[in-house]
Amino acid sequence: MEPSTHIAPPAPSAARLIATDGVVKRFGAVTALDGVTLALDAAATGLLGVNGAGKSTLMRILLGLVRPDAGRVEVLGVDAARHRGELRRRLGYMPERDCLPLEMTARDLVVHMAELRGLPRRAAVLRASEVLFQVGLEEERSRLIRTFSTGMRQRTKLAQALVHSPELVVLDEPTNGLDPSGREEMLSLVRRLSSELGIAVMLSSHVLEDVTRTCDAVVVLREGRVVTSGRLDAMEGVADRGLLVRATGDLDRFAAALGARGLAASRGDGGVVVAGAPEDALLDGVRDAAAESGIALRELRPAGPTLEDALVEALG
């Protein structure tokens, strides 16, 4: 699917993970969300936008923490405004802001959060051990949170969001403030949630790579509006536009070699645009034609805008 600025207005449906219809939220004179309509089914969806685009507001509305001024929101088939209690028991939430009680241990906090979500004491203790192990805090579980690094605090926030076995976990800027290695670890953990542990993920970030590495679909917000949404693999497809080949050598001979293989070659964008076949066949054809014509490849990438180009443009 091409990145698109046109979103078909779906009716909220129980069949979808998240469905919103014309959601509006204003804070005084500021319109944080302006008619957001979404229909999301992907196991992991990234909410992308610059600071102030409305990501956190949308997440808080999905959790029922903030009431929209207009529009409807269904999460897991439940009306987020009318059944907030039921919904929050099925969701996990990792806030962006500092929110951890500094004078508690990670274990005590996670047990307490499990109890608040309805787990009996014994089950809460067992679940806390499991999720703290999963996020890599089993050794530090008895330390006070005030002694934790930023990365450990982020992992504690993630653990409390997972302890009650949510169907969907909402992660607000999970890599915020992390150093490169901490960020790597957090992104690996987030990817595991949907790919191995079977928990649907909605992640917000203003960092493009966080979304492309961990999510299957993306929603881009700008100034409170959805400017594009869709599955990443569809956005990344090259078959429609072909490949752009930049090379040194005899490009006419290279084009002829491509033509002999049934591929269409045309000059453009400072190189040769190759099209006319599925992605794998295109790559094989370029390799063979380059070898036959003796050119030196300098660059090989999808013709037209890349996923990054499209998303960066959408982000504005």
């Binding site: 959790l63 923490l65 907030r84 209690g85 039921e86 929050r88 028991r89 969701l91 939430y93 806030p95 802001r97 500092d98 929110c99 951890l100 009680p101 500094l102 959060m113 608040l116 979500r117 309805g118 409390q160």
Partner: peptide, 13 residues
């Protein structure tokens, strides 16, 4: 510590 936001993200009002 801002913990109230965390508590309110559960079913607790």
């Amino acid at each position: 510590d801002g913990t109230l936001e965390l508590y309110l993200s559960t079913a607790v009002s």
